[in-house]
Each structure stands twice: as C-alpha cells, then as structure tokens.
Design a protein around this nucleic acid. Structure first.
Lengths: 332, 332
DNA sequence: GACAGGTTCTGGAACGGTCCAAAAAGGGGC
DNA sequence: GCCCCTTTTTGGACCGTTCCAGAACCTGTC
C-alpha cells in the first residue's frame, strides 16, 4: 500500500531498475520499445519519484529555499513571481519558509531549509541573523532580495533603487510647483536611503531650507500622528512624501480630519505601490518597486552562482517607476 | 568541504555512528559522558542532520505541506499562524507552496509537495483539482481549510461559519433600525452561503420584501458599480452588506461619490476583517473569520488522522465574530 | 570466579534513488 | 559462423540516516 518505487516499475515493465532510472531521466540511449514499456508501467502504477531518495543520491535537491521575512507584507508576491519564472525554467523548485512564523519557535528560521539541503537560498526582506548567513553562504549561493543591508561576503543583493525612487517622487512634487515639502521618514536601511535621497534632491533644487522631515514608525498610526503635527504648523507643507503606502494612508486620514482636501490643499505620495494604494477610494500616487524585475534578477544571480561558484557579492538595483494617481496635484 | 555527516561526528567523538544517532534522537540509554562527547563533537563540526536521509530511512518527513491558493490574498496568514503553532508543538514542520505561482508551469501544484512525501496536506482556499485530491487523500491525511467545497471522501474540512457570520451582520443592521438592506453578493460556495443566510435572516425578521441583492464579482470595481446602481434607486437602501471587505471598499467609494456620508446616510459592512478594513481611514465594520481557530482546528484534524488514519471526513465550522467599527450606525 | 540480568554500544541491513563499470545484445563484414 | 565494434542493459556500490539483533560491558549474588 506504499507508493510504488522504481523497482516496482522495473518489475512491471520487465526491465532492471537502472533502465527505469535511465528512461525517467530522459536518456536517449534506450530502445524506443523499452522506453515505452517503462513509461507505461510508471503511468499505470502512478509512480512519482521520491525526492528524498533522489536528492540523497544526487547530492543536490534542485530546490531553492525562499526565506520570507513576513507573509503579512504582500509586496514580495511579485518578486516571488519573477523569481519563480526564471528558476522554474532552470529546472528548480522553490520552497517557502516564513521567518516570522518560525521565529517564535526559537530556532533559526533558515534551519528547516538548510536541513533539507536546498541548493540555494533567497532571503526576501530584512535579514534574520546576519551572522548565521555568512556560514550559510560558504556552503551555497545566497541572494538577498528586496532589502538593502550590510551583507556577508559572497552574498549577492538585489533591490529597488530607493534613492532613485525618492528622487522621482521629490522631483515630481517640485515639478508640480511644490516648494515646502515634508517627508515622513522610516527606519532601517530603506528608510535611511529614502530620506537621504529626499534631502539630497531638495538640496539639488535649492530647496534645502524648505524641506521638513518627521520621523514615523512606518505604520498608519505613525503616519497619522506625524501628519497632524506637520499640518498644524503655521508654515504647513503643501506636499507630504511618506516612506511607504501605509504611512501615506495615515497621512491621508490626518489631512482629512484637519479639513484639508487631498490633493487640492495638500498632496501626498506613498511608496511601494501596494494593493492598498490601488484602492480607488485612496488612489495614492506612489512608487512601484519593480518587484518582478527584482525577482528575476535574484534568480539570475543564483543561476550564475550555480554555474560558477565563488566570487565577490554583486549588487543590482532595479529602476523603480512613479505611479501617478489621485493624491498629487499643483499646490492650491 | 561537504557538510559533516553522522559518521564524521562519530569519528570525532570516538564512538559508532549508531550511538551518535541514539544521542541525537534523545535516547536515555546512553552514558552521560558519551552523550556529552557526541554533543560536543556535533557542535564543533556544525553538524546538521540531513533531512532527505532521515526521511528516507524513517519513511516519514515530519512535514506537512500547505497548499495556498493565492499568496496575494492575505487572509490566510492568521490561519497559518494557528496551524503552525499546533503542528510545531507536535514536532512537525510546514512547507508552503503557492498554487497560483506553480499553476502556470502546467503541472499539478501539489506535485512538488507529494514528491517530497509530506506526511499530510492542508489545502487552504479553493481546491486545485478536486479529482487529484481524492487520490492524494488515500495516501495521507488531507484537510481543506478556509473554504467550503464538495470534498473527496476522507478529507476533513474546516472553515468559518459563513451562515452565522452573515446572520450576525444582518441582525446587527436590523438591530440598529435598518429595514431596507442590500447585499452585494459574490460567487462560489462562500458567496452563496453568505447570500442565502442574509436572505434567510431578513425573512426571519419579516423583512423579506425589503431585502435587495446585487451580484458583484468580489472586486472593488464590482462593489463600486453595484453600489452606484443600488444607491441611485428611488427607494435606496439604508444599509449595504458586502460579501467581502474589498467589495465593501468599492461600496464606500460609491457612496462618497454620490454625496452620501457613511455611516450617517448609509451603513456599509464588509466581511473577512482584512488589514484593509482596519485602516483608520476606512475603519469598516466587518466579520472576523476566526482564522487562527480555523488553523488550529485544521492542525488538530491532521494530528488526529496521524494517530488514527482512515474514517469519515469531518467538518468543523469556526464561529465568526462581528467587528463593529465606523461604518455602521442607526439610519438617519 | 562463574553466572544472571541489566545497561550500553555496535555492525549491518534497510530506505529509494543515481551512476558506473562491465555484461549482454545487436549489426556488419568476411 | 566468427570476430569486432557499438549500442543497450544490468548488477552493485553509494548517498546519510534509522532501526534492530546481538555483542560487550557492568554489577551484584552465590
């Protein structure tokens, strides 16, 4: 009653197990009638290869582990899509693990993937334990996707170009005629990069002294509170650039509650082009992070390293695009 | 340079591989000093057990496959959380596979999980190919979670109680004083159940002739259009119960665009308690599906079947709760 | 000091594949 | 029909574990 093995197939087809193995791996060194017999037997028995046995013998799993940092953030879905398309073409499976779900259990979230001996690892989002990753990278290709962090040697990195994205936003606002522009900053490497680029762009346009930065916590609540502070100032900004969409939604609520109309009285911009920003009720102007391209590039890096292991860690920044929707307009 | 095996550990500790195996599986039939030596050797070598070898030998993987139907719908995250907490306590790993991502590749999305010989399968959301599932269910425990569908024999089923949820909403609205109530219906088993229950509840309160049903497509756009139609009627309803949150957001936009204030002029209710409904800018009254409880119960069913395989498929409906927020009030 | 009975430890056979060296079969040419 | 060469097929070792039967080692008793 156990699943059929290659030996069951061999017996039914009247050949040796080695020949079955040969056929199933697509060898052309097999006479057509035998091949047919084997394939028929396999079909009739409903044979499925045992991945464990195969990877034990082959010393590889043809599987790439994807370590997600938090399933609740849906921005990675496009990334996965891009990643999968290329990896699958290369004959590789992907296996998902959610760091957040496994963290509470105390162990390193990558452990299950490592025990499975995945051939490579894609870490999506912020790193779990950077130290542990270094040891892993010595054993298999590792790519960090969708985040900008200091990374152990030999680890590739792919992410959206936050500097360019923040510049696109800032120049869009300046181009519309805004001068007094606020930024709701976030934390971490990403928050840092976006803020810096906002400030640099303002400076480049001679608006350094009109730039305001309020620090939030990348939540709706934080965006709301920071915006209330901002818009209550006597010299209130005419535009607010939020570090992400969710913060931007908070800003939107604040503006509305203060009786300001968006985008008539104040423009707001988000970042990430999440599904929230696409709700017609919000319709946020935002930045698309080119998640698909990030995923594809991560796959490319991984495949490259399978062919030529070792070498320096590379970095690729995907070009983001501005999604102009309903929350930005000329001032007044 | 290959990862250390149990034999490397044995050699370093000066014992046999069998003893190492014994120690690592936590046997108490081992003298403390040997145990110490083995553990030290394992630690020093950075030994990690090879999951493939282990599952080949043990004939089980201690792993449960979770087949997600679409990663883009975040409603399953809580379910996973509940599932994981119990499974992990039972010494089981979970492995995620996204049906939508793998579908394009042509093969059955469950295949990778089956090749890995997972010990059980949780299908989250709508079924992939119901036929294929039947064959799978003969080999391993299968639970369908978070969806209501006809299911092959021997498959357990856990989901939120849609009838009860729809009744909670309808009675909440009636209790507030609403009489002319509309329902924006969806499709599929879930859409059907919610609509039926809405109608039944209205009937039970003698309001059968005040109930209106518009059919949407479970998207924001569909909700928007259906609501425009509804609210332009001369006898416009004072409350709208949408089949899900996203449809409800569409309804909100429509109301706003028609110059109606929510909840003053019209109440709206969603379903699913998604993160969208919690945005303070929307703050939808909605129904929480008890995802955590659904996940826990699915794990329970699975664990039961590991202990006593076979038997009829069971069904459990988790009790939903009403989340009253800002979009419902007394009429006028 | 031999023996019984328990505790600890070990070698070897699985598990289900892949891969390799060698065996068997086939095909010409004489 | 025999020999040689190529194509096709096969048995067996191996991958890293677990598990089992039995070996080796204690400890206490007579």
């Amino acid at each position: 009653m156990r699943p059929p093995t290659i030996r069951d197939v061999a017996e039914r087809a009247g050949v040796s197990k080695s020949l079955v193995s040969l056929v199933l791996r697509g060898s052309d060194q097999v006479r057509p009638e035998k091949r047919e017999a084997v394939l028929r037997a396999a079909r009739e028995l409903g044979y499925r290869p045992n991945a464990a046995a195969r990877s034990l013998s082959e010393q590889r799993t043809r599987t790439v582990g994807v370590l997600l940092n938090d399933l609740r953030n849906p921005w990675f879905v496009e990334l996965l899509d891009g990643l999968n398309s290329l990896l699958h073409a290369g004959g590789l499976q992907t296996l998902l693990a959610d760091a957040r779900l496994n963290r509470r259990t105390g162990q390193d979230p990558a452990d299950p993937l490592l025990d499975l001996r995945v051939d490579g690892l894609v870490v999506v989002g912020t790193l779990p334990g950077p130290a542990a990753l270094g040891a892993v990278a010595e054993r298999m290709p590792v790519v960090l996707a969708g985040a900008r962090e200091p990374v152990p040697p030999g680890v590739d990195q792919v992410a959206g170009d936050d500097e360019q994205g923040a510049r696109l936003v800032t120049e869009h606002l300046i181009g519309l005629g805004h001068r007094r522009i606020a930024h709701l900053a976030g934390y971490g490497a990403v928050g840092e990069l976006r803020r810096r680029s906002f400030e640099a762009t303002m400076r480049a346009h001679g608006l350094a002294d009109r730039a305001v930065v309020e620090t939030g916590d990348m939540t709706e609540e934080g965006g709301y509170r920071a915006t209330v502070r901002l818009l209550s100032r006597p010299d209130r900004p005419t535009a607010v650039f939020a570090v992400n969409d969710i913060t931007c939604v908070g800003a939107l609520s604040a503006a509305e509650e203060l009786g300001l109309r968006v985008p008539h009285d104040v423009s707001v911009v988000g970042y990430d082009n999440t599904s929230i920003s696409r709700l017609r009720h919000l319709w946020l102007t935002t930045v698309d992070n080119a998640g698909h391209e990030v995923g594809r590039r991560a796959a490319r890096f991984l495949l490259d390293r399978f062919e030529r292991p070792g070498g320096e860690g590379r970095v690729h920044l995907a070009a983001p695009t501005l999604e102009i929707r309903g929350t930005t307009a000329r001032p007044f």
